[in-house]
Structures are given as C-alpha cells and as structure tokens.
Simulated assay, not measured.
Amino acid sequence: MQRSVDFGHVQVVIDYANGRVRCLIPAEPGPTTAPTASWGSAEHPAGLTVPGGAWCPAAAAALAAVLVIKAAGNRGTAMKRLIGTIRNAASATTRPATREQATASVHAVRRAAWYSPARTGCLEESAAVALLLAMRRRSVIWCHGVAPDPVRLHAWIMTHDGTAAAEPPSTSAYTPVLTIGEHRDTF
C-alpha cells in the first residue's frame, strides 16, 4: 500500500500499511541529506483560543473512536486501521454533505479536540470529521497529501464539489496522495 509523489528535487514515498514516510532525493554529486517529513501544518494556532462552533457530543464520540482505533493494536499498523475505518464509514453514506455541513462538522470536531487529552492533529481531526458525517449518512472526500519545501504531510476533508472544508488557502499547495470517499478511491 505504498504511494509516492515526485517533486523533482525529492520523491516522497508513503507506506499506508505502516505509516512510514521516506524522502528520496535524486542522485547528485556530493553528499546530501533527504529532508524529514513533518506530519503537521503550522497554520492552525494550537492552544491559543477555544475553537468556534457548537459543542457536539457526536463529534466527541467520533474523535474518541478515532483515538481508540489508533491506540488499539500494533502501533505500526495504526494508519492502516484508520484508513480502513474511513473507507468503511464512506461506504455507509447515502448523500453528499453540503459545504455548510462539512464546515460545521470540522468546527465541532476541533471544539471537541480542544478538550482531548490526546494529540489531535490534522489526521485525527479529518478522520473524526469523516466518521461524524458518516454517522449522519453524509459523505465527504477524505484527503491525505504532501507538499514540498519542506516536505510536509496534511489530511483534510473536501466536499464533493472540490471545496476544502474549513481549511486555509495554503491547503492547495498539497498534492493529494490518497483520497477516500469519491466514487472510486484513488489508491
């Protein structure tokens, strides 16, 4: 279950079975070091203010489910379990979520994550949003992508019309590597 993106100066290889990321650089004269990948983005000010949006017990339950799925079992297969869960949730949906529903769900999960004692980054947040909407039989597209310089990974939710839900404009710098929830998953 490996996917890769070649940016010319670096090829990023993501193994979705174990969550490992490798950065390969083309052969060049002289020694060089492959950059390390970052699993997060610096655009969301963590811990400064309580996120907006209404408190939603279902959002807290979806986030708790994601955290349990990641923590249960072998740590090396957490990403595989999470992807399987998102894929199963997407298969149970009946109608696309609107932009407003997707945005409200992102805000509700961010609000629940504010009170979570566990790490909640874009991966956990986007997976919880996908589960929350699936509980309501609404579908979105879960995206996992990579951006170069520096190499960084990001996960986000997109509506079926291609709108990223509650994301900064810089999300467009990420090249989707894996999407789940479209008519056909790109994997």
Rank of each mutant, 00 (worst) to 15 (best):
E167D: 15
P168L: 02
H160A: 08
A164L: 03
T186L: 11
I157Q: 01
S172E: 10
Y174T: 00
W156L: 02
A173T: 14
A155V: 05
P169T: 08
P169Y: 03
H154G: 08
S172D: 04
V177Q: 07
D185Y: 08
A173M: 06
E182P: 12
A166W: 10
R152P: 01
A173S: 11
W156F: 05
M158F: 00
V177G: 15
V177D: 01
H154Q: 15
G181S: 09
T186Y: 11
H154Y: 13
P168H: 15
H160T: 12
P168Q: 12
A164I: 04
H183K: 10
T179P: 13
R152G: 02
A164C: 01
S170K: 13
T163E: 15
W156A: 03
P169A: 14
G181K: 02
D185T: 05
P169W: 05
I180C: 01
T175V: 10
D161A: 03
D161I: 00
S172N: 15
P176V: 00
E167W: 07
R184L: 14
T159D: 11
T171G: 00
I157A: 11
A166E: 15
T186R: 13
W156V: 06
V177W: 04
Y174E: 02
T186K: 12
S172A: 03
T175I: 13
T163G: 10
P168C: 05
G162M: 00
A173E: 11
P169N: 12
S170L: 10
Y174F: 15
V151A: 09
A155N: 13
V177R: 13
I157R: 01
G162T: 12
L153I: 02
T163F: 14
L178Q: 07
A165I: 05
T171I: 02
A155H: 10
A164F: 09
T171C: 01
G181Q: 00
H183P: 13
T186A: 14
R152W: 04
E182C: 01
P168G: 15
H160E: 14
E167P: 14
H160W: 06
L178T: 04
H154F: 09
T159G: 09
R184I: 10
